[in-house]
Design a protein around this nucleic acid. Structure first.
Lengths: 148, 148
DNA sequence: TTTGTTGTGGGAAAGAGTGGGAATAAGAAG
DNA sequence: CTTCTTATTCCCACTCTTTCCCACAACAAA
């Protein structure tokens, strides 16, 4: 699983290294291929191929192109989506429009989120934490009760 | 699958390049042949031949010519439909009336929508996004819950 | 110290997007 | 039916971007 946080940098071509710790947890069947897209907040989500297909794609495939609400959502999700394979230096090329969406320039905060990886603008992440009005303990109680 | 967005241009003859990324996902059986028609909103839909036949045509075939509403829909869909094969530069010739329908002139935004490709007037797309009253996170939650 | 790994940077070759001209076909006019 | 004009199709060429590969420095392990 992906856990922990790392402060890396984005080079001039938009490449981001995937931490070595994370690479060890990617299934061989993912074939070093990842899918990225916007998160539901201002960050970038990165999924290993196998997980993307199982969890995300399966659900997207159920949406109907002739339903306006469903196709609108699909459009928003896929507009900023991209597929890429790690290069020989274990980096991913992140599209410009995705970096812009997340407000990432030189510095990037890489977060492990169990099955997926998130990329944040470091300052934006700090701000996001402060904005969250409820304390961790309160959210924890509320959200985790559903999963018991 | 077709994902991501690209800003390309339409040349004076009405030709539009299909992004290289997209070409890799077109089945050989499609034989570089595509079907285009109007979208359910103000954009152009482009389907690889195999998907058009399997998914779209099959549904159109189910419509009843003796039902006024169904035959009206069919008429609107097929009026602007066209078939074309990629030229040696991997471009499609898009009919004038389709470009007019979508309000596309010089610049075009190409969107990957999983199984199909959409062409938009860039400004129209921005406007369309702003019109959408609900934020992404809300639509995401609402739509994706249906697919669980 | 030596060896291997990891994050970062950059250059060269191949590929992709765009524009335009020549050849062919289609249509209008005489 | 022939001729002229217009439109379409096919092919070539240019330029910029992307991709692939090599190299370096910092750090850790042996």
């Amino acid at each position: 699983m992906f856990i922990g946080s790392f402060k890396y940098s984005v080079d001039s071509k938009g490449r981001v290294s995937i931490p070595a710790r994370f690479r060890k947890y990617v299934n061989p069947e993912a074939n070093d291929t990842f899918f990225m897209t916007r998160g539901i907040v201002r960050c970038i989500d990165i999924y290993p191929q196998d997980y993307w297909r199982e969890e995300v794609l399966k659900r997207i495939d159920q949406l109907d192109d002739f339903d306006i609400e469903e196709s609108t959502f699909k459009r928003m999700l896929l507009e900023l989506a991209a597929e890429d394979k790690l290069d020989s230096q274990a980096r991913l090329l992140v599209p410009r429009n995705l970096l812009e969406f997340a407000g990432i320039e030189k510095d990037v905060l890489i977060l492990g989120q169990n099955k997926k990886i998130e990329l944040w603008n470091p300052e934006a992440y700090d701000a996001h934490k402060k904005e969250s009005e409820k304390p961790y303990s309160e959210i924890a109680k509320q959200v985790m009760q559903r999963t018991k």
